[in-house]
Structures are given as C-alpha cells and as structure tokens.
Design a binder for these strands. Structure first.
Lengths: 222, 222, 222, 222
DNA sequence: CATGAATGAGTCTTCATTCAT
DNA sequence: CATGAATGAAGACTCATTCAT
C-alpha cells in the first residue's frame, strides 16, 4: 500500500479521464459541425451530444472558436503525418507524391469525411482567428509538399522552370486539386467509395502531369 | 404635355433609380463582406454604407442571405462569361484552356480581389442556402470547363484515359488549382501584381501538364 | 395642407415619442436600480417595467452600464442646477452655502430619494466606466462648491487658512457631509420628513461652522 | 513519545496553519478586490493568488460575499480600535476628536489604502447582505464618535443645540467628512503622502469647527 | 416606396457553488 | 482537509426581420 503509488495512480486516472472528456467533447463537436455546420451548432448541442454540461465545455475550451481551432489543429496534424510518412517512405522519388495523393483520398477522405467537411468547408469564412489557423495549417501542408518536391528535384537531378518559385506554386496547385476533388466528390456529389478510388488515381495522374510540365527536361529525356 | 408620356418618363426614371439602388446596395455589401466577412457584417452596416435605410435593404432583398446569393450569382456569371469568351475564341484548341486560365488571374483576380474573397471564402461554410448556390455555381463552371475539354478532344482527335469521367475530373482539378492559387497568393500572401502574373503562367502550365497526362496519345504523339 | 408642415409635424411627433420612450426606460431603470440594486436588476426587468422589449432597451442604450451612467448624468445635472441657483441667488454671501445645503436636503433628498440611492449607493463600486462618471460628477459638484466658497471669500474680504487648498478641501468636506447625512437618515434610518428637515438645519450649521474654522479672521472679527 | 502530547502539538500546528490559510486568502482577496473591484474578481483569482484551490476558499468562506463581509469586519474593527484608543487617551477632552481624525488619515489611510478602497468603495452597492454589514459597521463607528462627543459634553460642561439629536448628527457629519476626504484624495486624486497629511489637518479643523457651531455657548465662552 | 423604431428569439459566456476523490 | 472538475442557472447582448407611418 504505497501511498505514493496510490496517489500517483488516482492522479493518473483523473488525468486520463480529463483527456477522455476533452476528446469526447471534441468528437461531439466534430460530428455536429460537419453535419449541421459550425454556425448552426450551439454550445448547448455540443454539450448535450457529449453528455456534459455547458459549463464543462467551457472548462475545456475558452471560446466556441477554440473548439473549431483545436479540431483543425488535429486534422492538420493527422494530414501532415499521413503525407509525411508517404514522402519519407518514397525517399525523394516521385513515387512519394503519387502515394501521398492516393493516401489522402483513400486513407483520409474515405475514412474521415467529417474531417474533410470541417477542414475544407466549415472552417472557411468564419472568424479572424479561425481564418488565421486555416492559413497557418494550409501553409504548413503546402510547405511540406514543397519540401518533398525539392527533395525530389535533388534526388532526381532535374530542374524546375523557376527554381525559386515553382516548387511552392506546384505545391499550392496540388493542395488545390486535392481540396477541390475531395469536396466535389465527397461533399457535393457524395460519390461511392469505388468512384472515389478511381478518381484518386486520376487526380494523382493529373498532379504528376502538372509537376512534369514544370520540369525542365535535361538528361531526363526518355 | 402628354400626361402619358410624362408618366412613362417618370416611371422609367424610377425604374432606373430602383436598379441603381439595387446595385448600390449590392456593391456596398460586396465591399463589406469582402473586408470584414459575411458574418461580421450587419444589415445596418450595409444600409449605412449604401446610404439607405434598413427597410430599403429589405425591400430589395428578402433575407440577408439573398444579398450574398445575388453577389455570388453575379460573380459566377462574370466568371463564366470570361472563361466562355476565351474558350469560344480559341475554337476547341488547347489555347482556350491556357487563355482562360490567364484571363482568370489577370483579368478577374487582379481587378476584383473582393469578388475572389466572396466567391472563395465568404460564401463558404455559411448556410444551407448559400452552400446550395455555391455548389450550383461551381458545378456550372466545372461543366463549362468540362465542355471545353470535350470540345478540345473532338477538335484535336485525341482521347482521354477514361472518356466518361476524365473530362469532369480534369475540370474539377483545374477549378481547384485556380481557386487555391488565387486564395493563396491574393488573399493570404497579398502578392504584388507582377508576381501574380508570373504565377498565373506557372499555374496554367501546371494545368496543361495535368491535362496532357490524362490524354491517351494516339496520332497526337510527339 | 402644406405637405412640408405635415411632414414636419409627424417627424416632430416621432421625435417626441422617441424621447418619451427614452425617458420611460430611464425612469423604469431608476426605480428598479434604487429598489433592488443595479446588479440585481436585469435588462429584462427594466424592459418589462418600461413595457418595451429587451431589444428596445438596447436600441436606446448600448450597454446596461450606459443606463446607469445616463441616470447619474441626469441626477448630477439636476443637483448642480439646484445648488447653482442658490449660490447665484445669494450673490457671494454665506447665505448661499446655507440655502444650497437646505435645498439639497429639502428639495432634492426628500423629493427624490431614489436619486439619492442611485447617486450615492448604486453607482458605487460597479465598473470602471461607472466609477469614472461618478468621479467626474463629484468633481464637478465639488468644484461648484469650491467656486462658491471662493466667491464668498472675494465678496466678504476674508481669507482662508491655506488659500490655494482650503476652498477645495472645504468643498470636499461639505460634499461628504451632505452625502453621508443623506444616506444615513434617508437610506438607512428611513427618517420621517420632519426629522430630515431638522437634521438639514443641523448639518448646514455644522457645515458653516466648519467653513468658519478655516477662515482667517481679520476685520471680520466679532 | 507521549502520543497525547504529539497529537496536541500537531493539532496546534494544524490550527495555526488553518488560521494562516484563512488570513492568506483574506489578504489575497483584499488586494484583488481593492485593485480590480469586488465584482470583477472571481473566486478562482482569489484562490490562485492565495495559492490554494477553489474548494479551499469555500472551506473557509461559505460564499463569496462572506469574504467581503469578513474583510469589512476586520477593517471596521481596526478603525474602531484606532479611534477608540485616541478617544480614551484624550479622556473626554476635545483633543480626542482631533487626534482621532489625524490618526484616521495618517495611520489608517496612508498605511492601508486598500482597506480604504474596500471599506468606502468596493463594499458599496453590492448585495443586501453586504449592505447590511456596511450599515452595521458605519452605525457602530458613528455611535463611537457620538459617544465621544457626549463624553466631551459631560467633561466640558457644555451643551449641544439639540441634546438628543445633535451628537449623532455631528458624528454622522464627521464620518462623512472622513470618508469623502479619504476617497477624494486617496482614491481619486492619488495625492502624495505629504499632501494628505496637510489635508488631514484641514479636515480635522473643519470637523472641530463644525462641532463648535453646534455647541451652545454658556460658560464655555472664550 | 422609404424609413427606422421595435421586436424577441437565440447564444455565448460567466462564475458562484458543489462534491466525489 | 484539500483539490479542481463539473455544474447549470442566469444574463448580457446581437441582429435579422417586421411593420406602422
């Protein structure tokens, strides 16, 4: 009966429970925001859905905005991890771009359509603070892709048209393609899984083709 | 002193004034929505800015939403006209795609950044009705581009990988690229005019490269 | 049937009605604040009591604070007018001080105990903004009395102990006496009218005695 | 190893710690209330500042109000002790009044401006319970001064104008003077120490002059 | 038609207070 | 006893919308 250990244990359990509550609220909010929209969801609804009181929601999040911002943070982190893993696995080969794209559609979009809704729709056009976060996260993802493109350039001994700018521009284009394809087919057309997977192929091809077009061919000819 | 004619004249003047008021309100709203955000703008602010009363705003627009929806309609129309003109001028040659892209950046974005803000940011994640409009307009633009791609296919005797789907997918990708490049550099990085024009070139190249990659080369080889 | 006059008339009536509403709300608030306390009174109660909606209250006053601040302003103005009249009437003779004091108790306190409650109790210890207003008004009243004391000095060819400071200090003392006597007997002991009038005499005597003590006797001996 | 003694000792230590905690919380609250205002201070802030938990604050004080009421109690006690000492030391001579007044300004106000803030500002206009306490304490202090005045009358063989009422009224006036002078110069004008000391002299003179004026001169002439 | 005062439902947010651990 | 997470009632405030003039 080590009192120290006991205390530690109960403290740990409390800590765990606190984190669980935090996640429960976040998940309740995610679902509601994705379904009804951020504006159309009241804190009371979030509280009810998470089976806590309004006050508890405010114990974990200072403002309503903060819930959305935390959700975005999580989604952004998850996305970057997913892409980063693919990029790293491919070791500076163009395969990385392809696989990252496929992973985005097949692993992320198909499994977490609610996150797509929040990241690409509900977090847009809200408040100054939310927009700041959206910008930050998009910039990070863009920078990640840009980094991958640069590593590919180094690894493949190729050059892009405008070496200073192009990688960034390509990254922005790629991000745009992914975002719109996901929104278009997932949120607007509610396409079936099989279609999405085929579309993913196409979108990735398009992406690679776009990248190719900005490569200055040297010894890379055929 | 033909009373009939007089009446007609004053009626015409009134008609003109009415239309002027309508446009004045719309422009005031456009500016405010773009600058402060749709949510953050109250009807009173719009009325003040347009130098009319709140009641007058409600005479021309049944709901606040309707202002935004009308703005979107206008912007969508303008955009489609711009793209359509380029497509038609190029008569089913791939030049059309290129010129349409350049026109989007150089004519539309650079001259109407407020419209970009509204079309790609402020109209996102608002209400069901607004989202419906956004979907409709995006679908139309996508269909326009898809149509152009198909006409190019017919004109150039080429084939796309998946003839039923690919043109649409390519159109979606193109729309995504334009949207994101515009938002990224115009709204987020506030890039100077000269940069935007160079980026436009790059984005268009990327686009064409992407399209190319989904073309099945036959006689169009080399 | 001069249309101009008609328009003017209806506009004037509206203006009058608007001012009436404003006063109605202010009076409802005055009564409630004095009876239940500022904190304990909700805007809804004020609205109900004034027979308007909550929104209407907020149409006339931006914040709850503003109602209190406006009430204070009115009371302060009334008080200064009362005192000023007495001071002017007495033309720099010490009678002014006496009569102003009597007027304060007999005209102001006895007729408007609710204003006493608001001015000396409910407006204390609320918010920064309210405190600022309280300070401003008290300072003004103090300055008014100080001015009167100075005019008396000039008129009577007397001198105060410390000519730079004393008049202000005396004014502060006088303000303190009036405030506390009013609160003590009106708000705390709820003394009957007749008592208050006798007390007023006493308080005024005390005041004059105090002032006397800070006068440096020269030719005013005897 | 006397278990009884040990227990007693630890019990005593605990008792001491308990009292320390109580005082720590009270002091933290005093400082916060004086600086930010009672309303603007939350229990959490008090707890943080006292380095205890919210629950602990509620172990020592049943309600938030009670903290304020206890603070007032302490301040009132301290004030009465201070005045009482001076009165007693002067043994029914008018010196007592003078010294008590000087002590109020020079010992109390200058050393404990926070207590002034709480006693004369933050405790005003709060709740029914707080107001009751404020009334009680003010009444006590007033009665103390009244008592002193009466003892002076007895000792000096003088008579006041209205023997039943005047001493009370004079006491009320004195209390009012002290309160307002303290608030005016300490809280509003933030006068330097030296000024306050001079002002104290003046206020005390004013007080004595006021008292004098309500004395019916008989054998006390000159 | 234009006006702008009036409405009131709806929400966020605060925070004193409680209580299981 | 101490802790601090949980509660939920309460209230300020907003603003889209209406409608009498």
């Amino acid at each position: 009966m080590d009192p120290f250990k006991t205390k530690s244990r109960s403290a740990m359990r409390r800590q765990r429970e606190k984190e669980m509550r935090y996640r429960t609220i976040l998940e309740a909010a995610e679902s509601l925001f994705a379904r009804q929209g951020y504006q159309q969801t009241s804190i009371e609804q979030v509280a009810d859905s998470a089976e806590v009181s309004v006050g508890t929601v405010y114990f974990y999040f200072k403002k309503k905005e903060e819930i959305l911002i935390n959700l975005m943070e999580d989604i952004g982190f998850q996305l970057r991890k997913l892409l980063g893993t693919e990029f790293r696995r491919a070791e500076a080969s163009p395969e990385g771009l392809k696989n990252a794209g496929l992973a985005f559609f097949n692993s992320f979009c198909l499994n977490f359509p609610e996150k797509v809704s929040i990241f690409y729709r509900e977090s847009v056009g809200q408040s100054v603070e939310v927009e700041r976060q959206r910008k930050k996260l998009h910039m990070q993802i863009t920078a990640d892709i840009e980094g991958a493109l640069i590593r590919i350039r180094e690894g493949q001994k190729i050059r892009y048209h405008d070496d200073d700018l192009s990688p960034e521009l390509m990254a922005v284009c790629i991000v745009g393609i992914y975002e719109r394809v996901a929104c278009h087919y997932l949120l607007w057309k509610d396409s079936p899984k099989s279609d999405i997977m085929k579309l993913a192929q196409g979108a990735v091809s398009f992406t690679l083709g776009g990248v190719d077009s900005l490569i200055v061919k040297k010894e890379y000819s055929e």
